[in-house]
């Protein structure tokens, strides 16, 4: 494992930092997990490739079964990685979150963001809809919590997620953001629920670029979309099994209260 300078355990989740971690203001924590269409995972992976951020830490969930580490060039690293570029901290997960750790992980990440004085938490996820098959360019919607981010959404003319439920870690981010004094936005890109969808990820990245005022090219992502889909077939299957346990497919359905 890389040399750890700072280690904190929050809610049973271990955060390790390989260097001093200071973020300039306004600071962003950008989070994406493998979920519907692998939108979050593909987006984060592309941002890392484009911006070349420094790997500054890792996150481990000791309760996860089977115990897992990822090895690159012989070196073992935690399954979730932390990258930093300027005022942005990226959380990159190589695996979908099992339902039993979603709660502890989400609360721990919010607390970690608070301790690191993050201003905005940005989640990137897929909104699985059947209609995606008829759309060349998927739309991206935003759900938010907090006045500062509301202002940014208005200024950047980002389309709002009008009505529906959000499930999984981003539900906790949105619900609890105020308690942790964090402004949160979740970007939901229309996607094929159970097929990897780099085009949806590219649409989400375009909206993210606007929010963080940083140009992120999506050219390579679209060029290599078919390779990316082929490469991520197995993780999509594993993710689909996880999503069925969380009930992720319910996000696009109408809600009971329509007042």
């Amino acid at each position: 494992m890389p040399q750890v300078k700072n280690e904190e355990e929050i809610e049973g989740v271990v955060f390790q930092e390989y260097d001093e971690l200071e973020l300039a203001s306004p600071s962003f924590l950008v989070v994406g997990f493998p979920d519907a269409g692998l939108v979050g995972g593909i987006s984060i992976s592309h941002i890392i490739r484009e911006l070349n951020p420094a790997e500054v830490g890792g996150i481990d969930i000791p309760r996860l079964s089977p115990p897992i580490v990822f090895v690159r060039d012989g070196e073992a690293k935690p399954p979730i990685k932390l990258f930093k570029k300027g005022n942005m901290l990226l959380v990159a997960s190589e695996m979908p979150l099992p339902p039993g750790v979603i709660q502890m992980f989400s609360y721990a990440l919010l607390e970690y963001a608070r301790r690191r004085r993050v201003d905005y938490v940005i989640g990137i996820t897929g909104l699985g809809i059947g209609e995606r098959v008829n759309k060349e360019r998927p739309l991206v919607y935003a759900a938010y919590s907090g006045e500062k981010i509301k202002k940014i959404i208005g200024e950047k003319k980002i389309q709002l997620f009008n009505e529906g439920a959000i499930l999984g870690p981003f539900a906790i981010f949105l619900k609890e953001a105020r308690r942790f004094r964090l402004d949160t936005i979740v970007l939901l890109a229309e996607t094929f629920p159970e097929l990897p969808d780099p085009e949806a990820a590219s649409a989400a990245i375009e909206v993210l670029s606007k929010i963080i005022d940083t140009k992120i090219s999506i050219e390579k992502l679209l060029e290599e979309a078919e390779y990316i889909r082929l490469r991520n077939k197995e993780i999509m299957k594993q993710t689909a099994r996880m999503m069925s346990q969380v009930g992720k497919s319910a996000e696009a359905q109408p809600s009971l209260l329509y007042t």
């Binding site: 079964s65 099992p98 339902p99 077939k233 299957k237 346990q245």
Partner: peptide, 24 residues
């Protein structure tokens, strides 16, 4: 309840079926 904390390493023992595409 073990599945709640379990990461699904679901590929069959003889490896993933590369020629079977995903579908919806």
């Amino acid at each position: 309840f073990n599945f709640m904390y379990t990461f699904p390493l679901g590929a069959p023992p003889y490896g993933p079926s590369l020629d079977e595409p995903l579908h919806e």
